[in-house]
């Protein structure tokens, strides 16, 4: 898994790519929680994520809760069909705000 942090239109964009699995999700969790701790709106771009397992989704959930507690927002953008199915299975598609594209996510802020 790789990650990149972008500063775009007042939002912090966390770009994840590759496989987010049991081996790499601790790093994803650290990156996401660090981003949330900055107190700004966070967009998590999943366009380059080839696979995300439950530990990766759990990291997203924990980060979302962290953002809510901090009074900020975290949304997902460019969620693949496979990742969306995993979110839907646990009905998390009703919990996360999901934008089709990064531009859409930025515009929603």
């Amino acid at each position: 898994m790789n990650h990149e942090l972008l500063d775009r239109d007042g939002a912090l964009v966390v770009v994840l790519s590759g496989d987010v699995d049991l081996d790499s999700s601790p790093e994803a969790r650290r990156v996401l929680l660090d981003a949330v701790a900055r107190g700004r709106r966070v967009l998590v771009d999943l366009a380059g994520v080839t696979y995300i397992d439950s530990s990766g989704v759990a990291s997203l959930v924990e980060s979302l809760q962290g953002a809510r507690k901090a009074g900020t927002d975290l949304a997902l953008v460019s969620v693949s069909e496979a990742a969306l199915r995993v979110l839907q299975l646990a009905r998390l598609d009703r919990v996360f705000t999901i934008h089709a594209t990064l531009d859409e996510g930025l515009a929603a802020g």
């Binding site: 999700s25 601790p26 969790r29 439950s54 530990s55 759990a58 924990e62």
Partner: peptide
């Protein structure tokens, strides 16, 4: 994994 990650995974399942 972090215990909180485990707890969230268990609750998701």
């Amino acid at each position: 994994l972090d215990p909180q990650t485990m707890r969230i995974m268990a609750r998701m399942k």
